[in-house]
């Protein structure tokens, strides 16, 4: 919150990156991309690149943290040393990331049905590979995908998005410059089905009217993000299904009954990572499907 500092953030009704005030950045979501993790999610959100992994339910180490009634949820949010232009020291948690880890943990403690797994731990790791504003929100969205792919029982898939005040106007999804030079920045996580607020952190000042305007924007944006999350999760299965159906048809034509070249789920998700270079994937003819179409 550096105040405006003479930096103009809205020019002719458009923001610095050409968005309208109620517009999100470009979002790509992928689920289940790590083999060794129980669940994983990867999001490219504008210039943010965030990877999340979930392990568990597993044995609690150290043992004294065990809860005999429910699973303990542990979260770690960490920015990679190379994630932004600013120094991030030697990696590892610092004051800021310890606080964000705590609020992220509390978001997920409220949606995980932890009573199903007493005496266990569920570990959530959020790695910010590249940060460009609202990283905690993107991290929560990625961790939601990871938890859902891990098969951990959830009441809802949490959705997070930020709003803020730039040049006196309320705008959704703050980029880095808007966060640094705007007047206010609010990070919100909600449970889309119930509408419950799971996270609410505000920097700067907003009036009552501005807050209600901000929440209108948040609930609209949350619908859009939630739809993308669900599409990414369903793509995990529909990609495989279409692939096999296609191959079955091919095999019928060629009268061969072998399916040995059906790719592994890991290979599918690897090839799903290619929509950034769509021309190459089309050339190869190996695109399973577009998860965020």
């Amino acid at each position: 919150m550096g105040g405006n500092n003479g930096m103009q953030l809205i020019i002719n009704g458009k923001r610095l990156d050409g968005r309208a005030v109620d517009e999100l950045r470009e979002i790509k979501m992928f689920a289940g991309i790590l083999n060794k993790a129980d669940g994983s999610g990867y999001i490219e959100w504008g210039r943010n690149k965030v990877l999340a992994a979930v392990y568990g339910p597993r044995e609690v180490v150290p043992k004294h943290e065990t809860d005999p009634y429910r699973a303990v949820v542990r979260a770690r949010y960490l920015m990679a040393p190379f994630s932004t232009l600013e120094e991030h020291g030697r990696g590892g948690p610092n004051r800021r990331s310890i606080e964000i880890s705590k609020v992220v943990r509390e978001v997920f403690e409220n949606v995980i049905i932890s009573e199903n797994y007493p005496k266990t731990a569920i570990d959530i790791f959020i790695e910010i590979l590249e940060g460009h504003g609202s990283t905690r929100c993107v991290g929560i969205n990625a961790a939601s995908l990871a938890l859902a792919t891990a098969g951990i029982p959830l009441r809802d898939i949490p959705v997070a998005v930020s709003v803020g005040k730039i040049d006196g106007t309320i705008a959704v999804d703050m980029a880095k410059e808007e966060d640094n030079f705007g007047e206010s920045d609010v990070a919100v996580a909600i449970a889309p089905n119930s509408g419950d607020i799971l996270l609410l952190q505000m920097d700067g000042k907003l009036t009552r009217e501005e807050v209600s305007r901000a929440f209108d924007l948040i609930y609209n944006a949350a619908k859009e993000i939630s739809a993308k999350q669900i599409a990414a999760l369903k793509a995990l299965y529909s990609a495989q299904k279409e692939n096999i159906e296609e191959r079955e048809e091919e095999n019928k034509e060629e009268n061969i009954s072998s399916f040995s070249d059906v790719p592994l789920s890991s290979e599918i998700s690897q090839s799903q990572l290619q929509p950034a270079s769509q021309t190459t994937s089309e050339d190869m003819g190996e695109m399973p499907n577009e998860p965020n179409a």
Partner: peptide, 18 residues
């Protein structure tokens, strides 16, 4: 609560993960 396949007619739910 988890990803799964739901059969509306028979009211059966098969978890895919867990």
């Amino acid at each position: 609560a988890v990803i799964g396949i739901y059969n509306e007619e028979e009211e059966k739910f098969v978890p895919l993960k867990g």
